[in-house]
Design a protein around this nucleic acid. Sequence first.
DNA 1: ATGGTGGATTTTCCA
Length: 256
Amino acid sequence: MRIATWNVNSVRARLPRILEFLERVRPDVVCLQETKCLDEVFPLEALEEAGWSAATSGQKTYNGVAILARGRIEDVVRGLDDGVEDPEARVISAQVGDVMVVNAYVVNGQQVGADRYHYKLGWMLRLRDFVARRASQGEKLVVCGDFNVTFDDRDVHDPLLWHEKILCSTPERQALSGLTGLGLKDAFRKFHEEGGHYTWWDFRTRGWQRKAGLRIDHMLVSPPVYEALTSCTIDLAARDGLQPSDHAPVVAEIQG
DNA sequence: ATGGTGGATTTTCCA
């Protein structure tokens, strides 16, 4: 199974780039974040015409997540399922084949110390608890998405500039460790121990042109998936060219 | 400390 995660920064604005990616990379499952639209205006027909099924959880203007699959998408759960009032569409989970997929768009947090920063840390705890409830022993589990957090300074083009800044602060990294603490591993690091690999480049500072990015989009996988991984790459071609998202997709190949 | 660009919906919010 080939599985991808991609923050598309509007599914409607990005539709041509998404269709090109699906055709070129030929994944089996794709987790999208920042779809930025209500389910009723999600471009379902265009994707179905290209052979895809979709499960969506959207809202107007902000956030929004979706799972695309070549095959059947079953047992769809929207949100963190913990009884907490949450108007932000940031999580969708489903069974696809023998893999349980959790697709998350983690709160950005704006800046260290801001209200949204504290909200982010609390939200990540809720995400960890949700994943702990969804995980079962020996199961193939993939938790992927835009985590808006770097694991360590290898994921940062300029660690001095970003030291203890948003996306790089110690509390955020500890919150991300809450997920690896459940026994999940960073799929990308199985194949790439060195730094300098990024998934997001800021539009505002022309980060792509400066080759100045961060690795904040991740695929965290349970031991049976980790053992079966044969590759994990960042699709830089999707970040290049006309009207790209500010994120590149992460693509993993799971044998069997 | 601030602004740069991009998307959605609007003259502003969020990233």
